[in-house]
Simulated assay, not measured.
Amino acid sequence: MGRPAGDAQVALSSIQPQPRISVNTYSPSQHPFTPAHCDRHFKRIGYGAMQLAGPHVWGPPTDRAAAVAVLREALELGINHIDTADFYGPHVTNQLIREALHPYRDDLTIVTKIGFLRGEDQSWLPAASPAQLRDAVHSNLKNLGLDALDVVNFRAPGMEGADGSSIGAALAVLADLKKDGLIRNIGLSNVDARQVAEAQQMTEIVCVQNHYNLVHRGDDALIDTLAAQGIAYVPFFPLGGFSPLQSGVLNEVAAAMDANPMQVALAWLLQRAPNILVIPGTSSVAHLRENVAAGGLRLDASALQALNAL
């Protein structure tokens, strides 16, 4: 994946300046992506709600009114899908989403995750027994105020990435819940290609959510496979997560394009593959607007060459 640093510098020198982007700039990122086997239409920039909870994704936000304002602004800016989980808080982000947005617009898709719980010591605990998965679905339904969940991602075990274990038993439970009408679509999170294939033998998968960004590209082959199948790929930590992306090359590309580095990192993801949906999270309305504006930033060949060399 590496290219000599000198090549990146040559590419940087040829980047053409662009006018500052705004949230009203039209771009292909506004085109909806409809996954195979799914009737939900996703604009390619969504919103991840995890940061609305308190520190370490635990407890309520410091400013509840500000959190509600971010969610409402997201929809005003044209976002039509929100990523959440009832173990964020726990329960906090789902309750905020309901407070801010219920009754929900018809075009809004709420994507949630199950497969983990939070311990009283704020730990993250795998919770994938049949009873735990069913309880998690009902908890999401209750706190979101829904009769059925648009998309449920099974978050597979493994704190440092996919552990490669079989997920068949969990998928069987989700498939039954789908038959019962409590889940409309099933996705996966924190999985490898073999686990995706295992799940697809049992039920239709509409999206995969894994760790991926400009400098964490282990899923390149999986992204291309899913794109060929019409399945959405949703990178979590698209901007580096709790340790934001740091790169001199990224900073230089951003400066040449009159954008900020995080906008360039999002634009790179949007141009990486047509099935990528980004869900950057923030608790700030100003930061939210910057993230959405990234959809109007188009990276030329020289910028892409420099970034791909990282």
Rank of each mutant, 00 (worst) to 15 (best):
G2Y: 07
G2P: 02
G2V: 12
R3G: 12
R3S: 13
V10W: 09
L12F: 00
P17C: 07
P19I: 07
S22V: 12
S22D: 13
Y26G: 01
S27R: 13
T34C: 14
K43I: 08
I45L: 14
Y47C: 05
M50F: 05
L52I: 07
A53K: 01
G54C: 08
V57C: 11
P60W: 01
T62E: 15
D63M: 02
A65M: 07
A67Y: 02
V70N: 06
L71P: 02
L71H: 01
A74P: 13
H81S: 11
H81K: 04
D83M: 00
F87S: 14
F87T: 04
Y88G: 10
G89L: 01
T93A: 08
N94S: 12
Q95P: 11
L96R: 04
I97S: 05
E99W: 03
E99G: 08
A100N: 07
P103T: 13
P103S: 08
Y104E: 02
R105I: 09
R105C: 09
D106P: 11
D107G: 03
T109F: 04
V111L: 14
G115D: 02
D121Q: 12
D121I: 04
S123G: 06
P126C: 05
A128V: 06
A128F: 15
N143M: 00
L146Y: 09
A148T: 11
A148E: 14
D150P: 02
V151A: 07
V152Q: 10
V152T: 06
F154S: 01
F154V: 00
R155N: 06
A156H: 04
P157S: 10
P157K: 14
G158H: 09
M159G: 15
E160W: 13
G161D: 13
D163C: 03
G164H: 06
S165R: 15
S165I: 06
S165P: 07
S166C: 13
S166K: 11
A170Y: 05
L171Q: 09
L174A: 04
L177H: 05
L177N: 04
K178I: 01
D180R: 15
L182C: 03
N185H: 15
N190T: 07
N190C: 09
R194Q: 15
E198Y: 05
E204M: 10
V208Y: 13
Q209A: 09
Y212V: 07
Y212G: 06
L214G: 03
L214K: 00
D220W: 02
I223F: 10
D224C: 08
T225P: 05
A228V: 04
Q229K: 14
A232H: 03
S243R: 12
P244H: 02
L245W: 05
V249G: 02
V253Q: 01
V253S: 03
A254I: 00
A254F: 00
A256G: 12
M262Q: 10
M262S: 08
V264S: 02
L266V: 03
L266R: 00
A267G: 07
L270H: 03
R272W: 12
R272F: 13
A273Q: 11
I276M: 13
P280D: 09
H287F: 13
L288I: 02
L288V: 01
R289S: 03
E290V: 09
N291K: 02
A293M: 12
A293G: 01
A294Q: 02
G295H: 06
D300L: 07
A301L: 11
A301P: 07
A303V: 00
L304T: 02
L304M: 15
Q305I: 05
Q305D: 14
A306T: 02
L307V: 04
N308D: 15
